[in-house]
Amino acid sequence: MSDVDFRLTDDQRALRQGMRELLDGRFGREALRAAADADGLDRELWRELGEAGLFTLRVPEADGGVGLGLPEAVLVFEEAGRALVPGPLVATHLAGARAEPGSVVTAVWEEGGLVDHLADADYVLAGDGLLPAEPVRAAAEPVRSVDPLTPLHRSAGTAGPRAVHEAALLTAALQLGTAGWAMDAAVAYAKEREQFGRPIGSFQAVQHLCARLLVRAEPARAAVYAAAVTGDPGEIAAAKLLADEAAVAGMRDCLQVHGGMGFTWEADVHLHLKRAWLRAEQWQRAGVAEEELAAAL
């Protein structure tokens, strides 16, 4: 048996499947649209995600966690990204056992002082510690967020989390989920929508848009999974770069394949695109990741 092996173990497969089933049942299309219209996070869903291990996956079993590693975390985050689960998933995961079960933990981003879901947050992850959210909130200005599912504030003077690389990797995994959604949605629409008496997926221009979605998603997936195994900062930077591109460019192409339908509020396409934009600005934005990779050359 070789050790260079990307194949998932049975346990990893089961974990991913479990998360997918939970989200299919608990956060399907209707729930997503309801969340887009709702004020604030669904705390019940948040608690269930916590019980499923999303936030304590890497906490040692002795401390009440699941005792797994980054590869497993990446697999479930990919599912959460695909389902477009709202909320500060990454910061709450990084807080792990430091926050009591069910709490919402957010963090101030690296650049520009943006912070997501501050109104719902119980804590803000700063450096290695947790601050109560209230004082941070009192000093922050609300921003009208482009993503209907992610309220934003601008906050001056609060530090971000220290584990920026882990945050970047988990965000990359969310982006990977979006890249997968983009591909599935584009391909399904291309097979079903007909123009000129045939499915639009039989037009080469549309085929090539769809194929490019896969060509961006597959290297991104290899990069994200590899980075999860090695934990190497350079590989994480590469993973974030490629996953951001796969998600953002992927959603743009997905929108294009949907034609006018893709430009509507009613279709889910814009929700995924806007989230992809948002995650691309979080934790190792392109310029930061590129500089980090360049410095290592």
Partner: peptide
């Protein structure tokens, strides 16, 4: 940054080869 991005790209391509092989 262009060189940095290419470095990420080729790193990922090598991982993709390993992925395909496995």
């Amino acid at each position: 940054r262009r060189l940095g991005r290419l470095s990420g790209e080729f790193g990922a391509l090598w991982r993709l080869v390993q992925w395909n092989v496995s």
